[in-house]
Design a protein around this nucleic acid. Structure first.
Length: 594
DNA sequence: CTAGGGTTAG
């Protein structure tokens, strides 16, 4: 055995056979790594040995300090440096950008310009990345101008950084234009473009660009697939998502924690929790994000107990939960009616040094409200004082009032919601329904007038069903499906059948007046009924029907689909804005907690 | 003596 290895290292990791003074300060710095305490000792050493004029040393010291998170220390070092050169500044810029100090990155860049030091391509990529992190289009465009005038616009790295920047500030058309005009497209620029689409809600474009990549035979990698999986999760594209999983299994792509988490998320959001579970169980070292993805997957399918058990297991394994983990846990409790477990989880947040935020408040109110504990929910909101409840908290409370038919409280809550967010068109249906239910017709009129005068349009509801790898979209507002007539006829027959089985449409009287236009529309049913009918027409008996809807499913459709699952003897799975509904034999997995 | 662009959970 090597004798040196058995010797105890001193503070700087030496074996004791050389003294500090004999070792090069640079070596000491390297050994100090990113431990701020050690770095400060090295700094003192540098000063006492009279080497604080040595720029390369100061540079390494400052970048190490940044890597330890001590950006202020690095800034002080910089300001007190006897001289400054381009090497020091570009090192500071890249380090500050890499360790997520975008504001300081831009400030160092300003120093560079003020001292007339020419930036390099390294500098530009870092600064552009910082502008993206800051969501600062103005500075980013200025830097883009500098790039053009200094002749760096054809650098592969700089170009990829610019595409990523424009995608991240939601200038997707411009990002795509730059991307299309790139003579040499690196894999990173493809990935920037695909992830840019996905992150900004254009999952279809992300999937189409990936298809183009395959068509052109461009090699993709793990980062590409992660973004594609997110896009599949967004749209419910299970077939493509499964293809990605198979590809990963049969190719030398390591299933790391990032890719694993993306797969869990995809399977959960495409309706297949068991597959998500399978991926999770195969992961070597799931981190907090992987655990949270799995907990949330259970939650959105109504498996509250599984979610709670997994959360407990996570804690026992010493994984530190974060705010998002608690959102997933509380939401799982809300969707499964596990009030006691939810209270306990909420109570331990403070053990982890966390203050509940809006999302947690929404979950708690939702949880109490769904269970009919309206007064508990309402007191929860009142106890937030002096914190003003966010509109989403009022929305949860309003939904609970409607579900449990407490119209007096509902009107009060609706007034609060309307006052808190008068311009949100998404609330109008819920608001005016509540006022109509309470017989407050002058308030219905007020909401309606506000909507008209502000030209607010509620988001159009749509449902998507994937059949033979092709997505079919049904919407009350958009283009009719080419087979509308046949589907409508089939749907009418279906409605007769479920009426015979006991289905009673939810009374038109409580439907809100604003929906008048919708009733006149050629599509006389909500999009999810249409999608279900289409699915029944196009798939064989025994094949489950999977629908993705952008809004929450309404009471009438929920009831109707329960009956449809009964008369057609089909499993029907609907993902709405919040959660999954698995319909089978006339009942729904949500136990009517929707 | 140095440092790049893209990817995960609500």
């Amino acid at each position: 055995m090597n004798a040196k290895l058995s010797q105890q290292p001193d503070t700087f990791g030496f074996n004791g056979n050389r003294t500090l003074a004999q070792t090069s300060p640079y070596q000491i710095l390297l050994r100090a790594g990113s431990h701020l305490k050690l770095l400060k000792q090295v700094h003192a050493h540098i000063i006492t040995t009279g080497r604080n004029h040595h720029l390369p040393l100061l540079t390494k010291l400052a970048t190490s300090a940044i890597s330890s998170g001590a950006i202020l220390y690095a800034q002080k070092l910089f300001l007190r440096a006897p001289t400054v050169d381009g090497f020091l500044l570009s090192s500071l810029i890249t380090a500050a950008s890499k360790f997520h100090f975008p504001l300081q990155t831009v400030l160092f860049y300003r120093h560079m310009l003020a001292r007339n030091i020419s930036p390099t391509n390294y500098t530009y990529t870092s600064v552009i990345k910082a502008c993206a992190q800051l969501q600062d289009p103005r500075t980013g465009r200025v830097v883009h101008c500098h790039i053009l005038t200094n002749g760096f616009s054809l650098d592969q790295f700089v170009e990829a950084a610019l595409v990523s920047f424009y995608a991240k500030i939601r200038e997707l058309k411009f990002a795509r234009k730059m991307f299309d005009e790139m003579p040499q497209k690196s894999i990173v620029s493809w990935n920037s473009m695909i992830s840019g689409y996905e992150q900004n809600g254009f999952a279809d474009e992300a999937i189409m660009l990936f298809a183009k990549m395959r068509e052109l035979g461009v090699q993709f990698d793990s980062a590409t697939l992660v973004s594609v999986l997110s896009a599949c999760a967004d749209t419910g594209a299970l077939e493509l998502g499964s293809w990605v999983h198979d590809y990963v299994k049969s190719n030398p792509i390591s299933l790391d924690v990032v890719l694993g988490t993306a797969l869990i998320h995809m399977y959960a959001k495409c309706g297949n929790v068991r597959k998500a579970q399978g991926v999770f169980e195969l992961m070597d070292e799931p981190n907090v994000m992987a655990w949270t993805a799995m907990i949330s997957g259970y939650g959105m399918h109504g498996f509250g107990k599984e979610a709670i058990d997994l959360f407990r297991l996570m804690i026992n394994q010493g994984i530190y939960p974060n705010e998002i983990t608690f959102v997933a846990v509380l939401s799982a409790c809300a969707h499964a009616g596990l009030v006691q477990a939810g209270r306990e989880a909420f109570a331990i947040m403070k053990n982890y040094g966390m203050m509940p935020g809006t999302e947690h408040h929404v979950c708690m109110v939702d949880m109490f409200g769904r269970m009919g504990l309206l007064s508990e929910a309402y007191h929860y909101i009142k106890d937030l004082f002096p914190v003003q409840p966010a509109p989403a908290v009022w929305t949860a409370m309003l939904g609970a009032c409607k579900l449990h038919k407490n119209y007096d409280l509902g009107v009060e809550v609706a007034d609060n919601l309307f006052a808190a967010e008068p311009d949100n068109a998404g609330h109008y249906v819920l608001l005016s329904n509540m006022y109509a239910l309470a017989g407050q017709m002058e308030r219905v009129e007020m909401v309606r007038n506000a909507a008209i005068s502000k030209e607010l349009k509620k988001p159009a509801g749509y449902s998507v069903i994937e059949i033979d790898q092709k997505a079919h979209l049904f919407s009350t507002g958009g283009m009719p499906h080419p087979e509308s007539m046949a589907i409508l006829q089939f749907l009418d027959e279906l409605v007769q059948q479920i009426k015979a089985a006991g289905y009673v449409p939810v009374s038109e009287a409580i439907m809100h007046e604003l929906e008048e236009e919708e009733k006149e529309c050629a599509l006389r049913y909500h999009s999810e009924k249409f999608a279900v009918a289409f699915g029944l027409l196009k798939t064989r008996q025994g094949v489950p029907i999977r629908i993705v809807k952008n809004l929450r499913i309404c009471e009438d459709c929920h009831m109707a689909i329960k009956y449809i699952s009964l008369v057609s003897k089909r499993e029907i799975c609907v993902r709405d804005k919040l959660r999954f509904h698995h319909f089978k034999d006339g009942s729904c997995s949500c136990k009517d907690f929707w």
